[in-house]
């Protein structure tokens, strides 16, 4: 398949949305939970869901689930898994720049391996029934 074809473009747009919605969703939930006292009852958990940051995070994670299902309507599972693993990298970067988390040398190494794996698989066709 031509990498500039409309289908390839659609695949990359959906993959980018899947990665962004998952990473930002997790980030907003983590950001929101850090400002809350310890949750020790189902009622406090329910209250946490309706705080602004956690609510935005949950909406983003619902968007992630639906866009991922849509992507799977034409892309193979064995294609989607490594390509959307870029989310691990984005989450690490969001943690470093916005939550002041530390990224060790080993984590940078892991980041490069994930990016390499994503590029390798992403160069092929999303559907194995197509020729690359």
């Amino acid at each position: 398949m031509d990498s500039g074809s409309p289908r390839h473009l659609k695949t990359w747009l959906f993959a980018a949305f899947v990665v962004l919605s998952n990473s930002l969703g997790n980030f907003f939930i983590a950001r929101g939970m850090r400002t809350l006292p310890e949750l020790n009852s189902p009622w406090s958990l329910l209250q946490a869901i309706f705080t602004p940051f956690v609510a935005v995070g949950i909406v983003l994670l619902i968007s992630w689930l639906l866009s991922r299902m849509m992507l799977l309507s034409w892309a193979d599972l064995s294609y989607m898994l490594p390509v959307t693993s870029l989310g691990y990298v984005l989450s690490a970067l969001l943690g470093k720049f916005f939550l002041n988390e530390q990224i060790s040398l080993a984590r940078w190494g892991g980041t490069f391996l994930i990016v390499g794996g994503t590029i390798l698989v992403g160069m092929g066709a999303p559907d194995s029934r197509e020729k690359t």
Binding site: P82, S85, G110, I114, G117
Partner: peptide
């Protein structure tokens, strides 16, 4: 190519 890609990602997640 996919097997290599999956292997790299799995190792990368382990290192992360």
């Amino acid at each position: 190519r996919r097997w290599w890609g999956v292997g790299l990602v799995a190792c990368g997640v382990g290192l992360l």
